[in-house]
Simulated scan of single mutants.
Amino acid sequence: MNTTARISTAEHLGRALGRGWRAYARGERRVSNWLVSKGVPSAGAAAFVWVVKLITLGVLLYTTFWLALLLVFVVLAAWMARNTDLGDEVPEPEWRNGSAGFGLYTYDGFRIDPHVEDD
């Protein structure tokens, strides 16, 4: 039996996301501390960080909205293209019994083959 513990893919992903979040928080603190060192009040630095976050969120939501709208139009266009009847062709003439006897008739009931009335 192996004594080393295996780490699942979900745990790897969770750890990677955690490292990314900690790196982001460190960068945010670094920017806030830099602003405070330049003479900005700490409340102003915190407000600036939040404004940047909200602007970023707004840009992401705006972009997501337009991409979702584009996706809806693409799906709608594909659905309309699938449901359109591009084959508006008239059916081929067929041999059948009709009002003028057995012969070659069009889709609207006219006999088109040469025939003799005496038959």
Rank of each mutant, 00 (worst) to 15 (best):
residue 66 W to L: 11
residue 109 G to K: 04
residue 2 N to Q: 10
residue 96 R to E: 02
residue 52 V to Y: 03
residue 73 F to T: 05
residue 96 R to S: 02
residue 117 E to P: 15
residue 99 S to M: 06
residue 22 R to E: 13
residue 40 V to K: 07
residue 86 L to G: 07
residue 12 H to D: 08
residue 34 W to C: 04
residue 111 R to I: 06
residue 2 N to M: 07
residue 101 G to D: 01
residue 91 P to R: 03
residue 53 K to Y: 11
residue 47 A to Q: 13
residue 56 T to C: 07
residue 54 L to G: 03
residue 37 S to F: 02
residue 100 A to D: 14
residue 47 A to E: 12
residue 13 L to N: 12
residue 3 T to F: 10
residue 14 G to C: 07
residue 99 S to D: 11
residue 67 L to K: 04
residue 50 W to F: 08
residue 58 G to D: 00
residue 49 V to L: 14
residue 21 W to D: 05
residue 35 L to A: 12
residue 7 I to S: 05
residue 75 V to F: 14
residue 92 E to P: 05
residue 2 N to V: 11
residue 68 A to G: 09
residue 110 F to G: 06
residue 67 L to M: 10
residue 60 L to P: 01
residue 19 R to C: 07
residue 93 P to C: 05
residue 59 V to Y: 12
residue 85 D to L: 09
residue 34 W to M: 10
residue 113 D to W: 01
residue 28 E to D: 05
residue 31 V to A: 08
residue 39 G to L: 00
residue 25 A to C: 07
residue 112 I to S: 01
residue 44 G to A: 09
residue 23 A to P: 01
residue 41 P to I: 01
residue 88 D to V: 14
residue 27 G to T: 14
residue 34 W to N: 06
residue 56 T to E: 11
residue 62 Y to C: 03
residue 55 I to V: 15
residue 31 V to C: 02
residue 107 Y to F: 14
residue 47 A to M: 14
residue 93 P to D: 01
residue 55 I to T: 10
residue 38 K to G: 10
residue 73 F to S: 11
residue 4 T to I: 14
residue 28 E to F: 00
residue 56 T to R: 08
residue 98 G to E: 01
residue 10 A to Q: 15
residue 25 A to F: 04
residue 96 R to A: 08
residue 119 D to V: 11
residue 23 A to H: 10
residue 88 D to L: 13
residue 28 E to H: 03
residue 32 S to T: 15
residue 41 P to E: 04
residue 37 S to P: 03
residue 65 F to I: 07
residue 90 V to R: 15
residue 109 G to E: 03
residue 30 R to H: 12
residue 60 L to V: 09
residue 9 T to N: 12
residue 40 V to E: 05
residue 53 K to I: 04
residue 107 Y to D: 15
residue 93 P to R: 00
residue 23 A to I: 04
residue 59 V to I: 09
residue 22 R to Y: 05
residue 85 D to S: 09
residue 110 F to S: 14
residue 34 W to S: 12
residue 62 Y to S: 06
residue 5 A to L: 01
residue 59 V to L: 14
residue 15 R to G: 09
residue 51 V to C: 02
residue 85 D to G: 06
residue 95 W to K: 04
residue 113 D to T: 07
residue 84 T to L: 10
residue 119 D to P: 00
residue 88 D to K: 10
residue 115 H to E: 04
residue 18 G to A: 14
residue 22 R to A: 13
residue 97 N to Q: 04
residue 16 A to M: 04
residue 95 W to I: 02
residue 85 D to K: 12
residue 36 V to S: 07
residue 59 V to R: 05
residue 66 W to I: 06
residue 46 A to H: 03
residue 5 A to S: 02
residue 19 R to Y: 10
residue 10 A to W: 11
residue 34 W to T: 15
residue 11 E to K: 10
residue 86 L to T: 01
